[in-house]
Deep mutational scan, measured.
Amino acid sequence: LLPSFEIGAWTEDDVYCWVQQLVRKGDSSAEMSVYASLFKENNITGKRLLLLEEEDLKDMGIVSKGHIIHFKSAIEKLTHDYIN
């Protein structure tokens, strides 16, 4: 489970856990499981996660359009939940 809904306070480890949970919950393929490490390697914290754009995801090595859409949708939901 994630430490809190205060996404802005999430550490790199918290984001890593979130990506792992996202991959487990989704209908995503096994190749998506490597993405948790990509987020950690790129020092993505909660604040940075909320700022990620499609180009950032591509720069991190996420090239599948479907996977990018999956992440963007999940990040938008997080942003919405965080604001409300």
Score class of each variant (00 low, 15 high):
L1F: 09
E76S: 10
S29W: 12
L1G: 13
S64F: 04
T79H: 14
L2K: 14
T45N: 12
V19G: 00
K65A: 08
R24A: 14
V19P: 01
S73P: 00
G8M: 13
M60K: 03
H80E: 12
N84L: 08
S33K: 10
S73R: 14
K25V: 08
R48D: 11
D14N: 01
G8D: 15
D14W: 01
D81K: 10
Y82C: 10
L38R: 06
A30G: 11
W18R: 03
V63K: 15
E41L: 07
V15H: 06
H80S: 11
M60L: 10
A30T: 12
K72I: 09
K77M: 05
L57T: 04
K40V: 05
E53R: 11
R24F: 14
S37V: 05
K25Y: 09
L52C: 07
Y82E: 09
T45A: 02
I7S: 04
S73E: 14
E76I: 04
L57C: 01
Y35N: 04
L2M: 13
I7K: 01
Q21M: 05
G46N: 00
E41G: 04
I75L: 02
L52I: 02
S29D: 11
Y82N: 12
S73G: 08
Y82A: 12
P3G: 15
S28C: 13
I83A: 15
C17T: 11
I69P: 04
L78S: 00
I7W: 04
D56Q: 03
S33M: 09
H67Y: 06
H80I: 09
E6Y: 01
E76R: 12
K58W: 09
L2V: 13
E76G: 06
C17V: 09
L52A: 02
L49W: 00
K25M: 08
E6D: 14
I75A: 06
D59Q: 15
D13E: 12
K40G: 02
E6Q: 03
I7R: 02
A30V: 11
K65C: 05
G46K: 05
I44P: 08
D27L: 11
H80F: 11
M60A: 01
N43F: 05
T79M: 08
D27M: 11
L52K: 00
G66F: 08
N84V: 10
D27C: 11
I7L: 07
E53I: 00
D59R: 13
W18C: 00
E41A: 11
I69Q: 14
E54T: 04
L57I: 04
E6G: 06
E55A: 10
L2A: 09
E54V: 05
G61F: 02
T79F: 08
I7N: 02
H67V: 07
D81P: 08
S37D: 15
V15P: 05
S4Y: 09
S73W: 06
C17F: 07
E41W: 04
C17Y: 11
D81S: 09
K58T: 10
L49N: 03
Q21L: 03
K77W: 03
D14I: 03
V63H: 13
M32G: 06
W10R: 01
K40L: 06
I69T: 13
L1M: 15
N43P: 02
L2G: 13
L52G: 04
S33I: 04
Q21W: 05
G8I: 07
L49K: 00
V63Q: 13
E55I: 03
L1V: 12
W18T: 04
Y16K: 09
V15C: 00
A74P: 05
S64L: 07
G66R: 14
M32V: 05
D14K: 00
M60E: 10
A74W: 05
E41Q: 14
E31R: 06
K40Q: 02
G26Q: 11
K25C: 09
